[in-house]
Design a protein around this nucleic acid. Structure first.
Lengths: 369, 369
DNA sequence: CTGTTAGCGCCTTCAA
DNA sequence: TTGAAGGCGCTAACAG
């Protein structure tokens, strides 16, 4: 009666009780052999192990979690899984988490604040032991973040860091990275460099803009507000905006600096639509690597963020908090350097493309000073 | 005494009991307003809601799961998160799962059978309601798969389908896709086409090889075993193998067909090392899009798998099984068509690259017939 | 409609 | 070292 023997119908999952019964021991003993917390005599241990593998028994972690109030699970919320940057971060997190026997659950907010709120709520209900958060473009309110940390759930902000929230965070040195990119463009001979940004509500974007300006100033060039074009992270919209502004050939920039991947793709589309070629007609550098299906010839100079490393370090900080090893009250703030992958799209002066611009051998990589 | 008022120390998480007490109702009532399963009077409901938001109460899903024995979680195991193909599949799964209020937990087996076994075990212990599996290259044993499905956990195989396992599965039409790629190469004038495969223990790889052969035969060309090079999915090893074999200039193929992304990258590296250029010196087509940092000029013709769709459909099948809507005993088998993105690397005959091979406008996309 | 209660499967004292 | 018992937080069934 215990177990229906209908052939292909689902068997019930065995419990620790059945294991104990079959092995002729008490449940406590079974638990001890499983967790290894308390030593068990050789004999009993073997008997129990045998029953476990016979039954194909798998301890119920949800029951265990309820008892121990630990889930060994981490959650990460990113705004968009389709931007390659985020999956890379997630890989970094997964790696760090896995090393310490944590699982990761990754979800996407679609850059929507409400969705993000729901997700945060879900992760809390699921009793994640720690949360990694890349906020939506319209940034998460301080209070909703604080509510989480105050409840004892460690949280680290990743990539997009709202202003003066005192929480752990890791991201890239935005200003320095942007400055590096713009300085490169200047070195290649550009004088009128337009910058296309994402929403300036994002601190990152403001920082990148800052880096752009300081590069210009250092080169004795005056930032021109007419060359600062604010986009919305939507490829199509950015393309439309650029087409519009590039139409005015008299005031056309001689180079474009894009502060993120989706924007960069929008710019490229606009350039194509306007019949402009890089680098002959206009120089181009963008933050973030682009996906290959959208790659244009010639190849694009990009600012590469250490995405894996960002994720890995963020997870590391989080795990230290969880395991209580990090007793600092002060939030940890990590800022990693980006690198510049020089490719064809910015070789303005070099002019004649070497006929062998053929492979990534031609890539030059530098770190910001 | 109930709650320490030390300022920055973690508050305990409120339980349904506290909510009930503060709201002056019974726990059952609180449960009813939360789940909505049983109607509750306007008054009480509001009172309860108020307490909930005051307390910032989040129902403990692990307790709920223990009671209901449902987790609303899906697990997916892929062999390698760094191959862009898999994150794309995962996005498809995530999308489908989210639509029905399931969460997804994605893990990587590193293409290792033991690791895969551990992960399967983990997912079972975590009481995932369904499992998506891309097996390791050394394929998962039938019995370990059956043990899972027999226990009532729906499982669908994705991308890599072991021979004659009667389980739900979704993947691409490997043979047709490969045939399409090779026929394209033939149409461009190639006569001696080498194929570089992954381990032929994988059914996919064997199918792709089959497609290659039938394309040749249909064109009246004899498959030459000397042009079938079996690799191991490791970029470096594949590159070494190709360098070796390409050295023999007398028997050199006039085109190369690669059956997967990592292998394709290895081939490209070898070509570079040998000073061979596509398409002038040798034609080239590969399965799967490559990541941009590895993109070579000129652009590469690829066979594009509908990765998102694969993931989405797999999740759909899985969810139907979970919700018991799919009463079929017969396993569902879905095979999706791939498309061919024709780019520069295969334009052997065309010879003169149009000077405007500039954008993806030049891409031509076709479906296998 | 509301309140009470009995477990879900496991871990952890505590005694033996 | 082993066994017995309580309870983690919640839902579902039932009684009021």
């Amino acid at each position: 009666m215990r177990r229906s023997s209908k052939s292909s119908s689902a068997r019930r999952k065995p419990t620790i009780n059945e294991v104990a019964k079959l092995a002729g021991v008490a449940v406590g003993t079974v638990s001890n052999v499983i967790t290894g917390a308390v030593p068990v005599s050789e004999k009993l241990r073997e008997k129990v192990q045998a029953v476990i593998s016979n039954l194909d028994y798998h301890p119920n972690y949800v029951a265990r979690s309820l008892k121990t109030s630990r889930t060994r699970m981490l959650g990460i919320i990113v705004p968009d899984l389709t931007i390659p940057f985020y999956p890379q971060i997630i890989r970094g997190v997964e790696t760090a988490a896995h090393q310490r026997d944590y699982s990761l659950i990754a979800v996407s907010s679609e850059d929507d604040l409400n969705r993000e709120r729901e997700l945060l709520s879900l992760l809390r209900s699921q009793r994640m032991e720690g949360i990694l958060l890349v906020t939506a473009a319209e940034p998460t309110s301080h209070t909703s973040i604080l509510r989480i940390t105050e409840e004892g759930i460690p949280l680290v902000l990743v990539d997009r860091i709202p202003d003066k929230v005192s929480v752990d965070s890791v991201s890239v040195e935005d200003a320095a990275a942007a400055q590096m990119g713009v300085e490169h463009l200047i070195a290649m001979g550009s004088q009128r460099i337009a910058i296309i940004t994402g929403p300036l509500t994002l601190t990152n974007e403001r920082e990148r803009l800052r880096g752009y300006k300081s590069a210009l100033r250092r080169a004795g060039l005056m930032p021109d507000d007419g060359l600062i074009w604010e986009g919305n992270l939507c490829r199509g919209d950015v393309a439309a905006m650029c087409r519009e502004r590039l139409r005015d050939t008299t005031a056309r920039p001689d180079a474009i600096f894009s502060t993120n991947g989706p924007t960069g793709l929008g710019v490229l589309r606009a350039l194509r639509d306007c019949g402009l070629h890089t680098p002959e007609d206009i120089g181009f550098v963008t933050f973030d690597e682009l996906v290959v299906e959208d790659v244009f010839l010639p190849s694009i100079t990009t600012i590469v963020q250490p995405a894996f490393e960002i994720g890995f370090q963020a997870a590391d900080i989080l795990l230290k908090r969880i395991e209580g090893k990090s007793k600092h009250y002060k939030p940890v703030t990590v800022r990693l350097p980006a690198t510049l992958a020089v490719r064809a799209s910015s070789q303005i002066i070099a002019g004649t493309l070497a006929p062998s611009v053929h492979s990534s051998q031609n890539d030059v990589t530098t770190k910001p000073s």
